[in-house]
């Protein structure tokens, strides 16, 4: 048998109070892949990520990390396989950014001890890569939403897991920082790591992700390369918005542009 995939999901369903929030989701992620989850608001993107780390208990289906069933892993073992970044970068107490990033190493430190010097060194390396060194000594409560997201991204990288699950990590970032984060993610995935990332911006998703999962109404509508998934008809149907999907004249990557004067309707 070939090497097991980093993440293997089959028949995943999640029901809450008789509402079917996820229905028969099948996903497989191989080492080195950067996969985007797209879909309209309320489609189930966040729910899917939360089920994948067992924060929400799946009602049905199988989730495997590196061939190991999720329900057989302890919390500690799971956190060695997969790291997760929630949609809202919460900050309730004035920890410094460096302290927040260090928390990412807490789980693996309990297994392999890490000296404070080495820990600080690792924090500095990641902070330098993400260009957030000036933030390190500042209080997380005083940072802007975008700065907090970058700190949380650094915290997730500190966990040193083969797979990252990120829930809209760039929702508060400007175009410069978003591109920076996505490029960092791409080079991270080039080293046999993988990431599954929920995104709202379809152009960003098309530019950086090799593969997209299109979710709507809790179902996996389409999956594949961006040009296969992002069709004008499909986006119009599920987002209720007419768009133009066209390759960029210079870079050749897909861009998704809204057409004005069409109305968004909430179901």
């Amino acid at each position: 048998m070939s090497q097991p995939s980093l993440l293997h999901v089959s028949g995943l369903s999640y029901r809450l109070h008789s509402r079917q929030l996820l229905d028969d989701i099948n996903v497989e992620i191989q080492p080195g892949e950067l996969v985007g989850i797209i879909g309209p608001n309320g489609a189930g993107k966040s729910t899917l990520l939360k089920c994948l780390i067992d924060f929400l208990p799946a009602s049905d289906g199988q989730i495997r990390y590196n061939g190991k069933a999720l329900h057989e892993l302890t919390h500690q073992q799971r956190a060695l396989e997969v790291a997760y970044m929630a949609q809202h970068p919460e900050a309730s107490f004035p920890f410094s950014a460096a302290e927040v990033i260090a928390l990412g190493a807490e789980n693996r430190r309990q297994i392999t001890p890490l000296s404070p010097q080495l820990l600080n060194q690792q924090i500095t390396v990641i902070a330098r890569e993400l260009q957030i060194e000036p933030l390190l000594q500042r209080k997380i409560t005083e940072l802007s939403g975008g700065e907090r997201q970058l700190v949380h991204f650094a915290r997730v990288l500190m966990q040193q897991t083969p797979l990252l699950l990120l829930d809209e990590p760039s929702s508060n970032l400007d175009i410069g920082h978003e591109t920076w984060l996505m490029q960092r993610l791409k080079s991270h995935c080039a080293k046999a790591n993988s990431a599954l990332i929920a995104l709202h911006n379809l152009t960003t998703a098309a530019t950086f992700c090799e593969r997209l999962l299109f979710i709507a109404g809790g179902r996996l509508i389409a999956s594949g390369k961006p040009e296969q998934v992002l069709t004008e008809a499909r986006i119009a149907e599920h987002y209720h918005q007419q768009v133009i999907v066209a390759p960029h004249p210079v870079t050749g990557t897909l861009t998704v542009m809204p057409v004005q004067n069409t109305n968004v309707r909430f179901k």
Binding site: K50, I53, D54, F55, H75, Q76, R78, A79, L80, V82, A83, Y84, M85, A86, H88, E90, A91, S92, F93, F95, V100, L103, G104, E106, N107, H152, R155, V156, Q159, L165
Partner: peptide
């Protein structure tokens, strides 16, 4: 300390 980053994040970092 982990829980201050929110329950979802704390769970993601391996906390029960």
């Amino acid at each position: 300390n982990l829980i201050t980053l929110g329950e979802e994040n704390a769970h993601g970092m391996g906390l029960n």
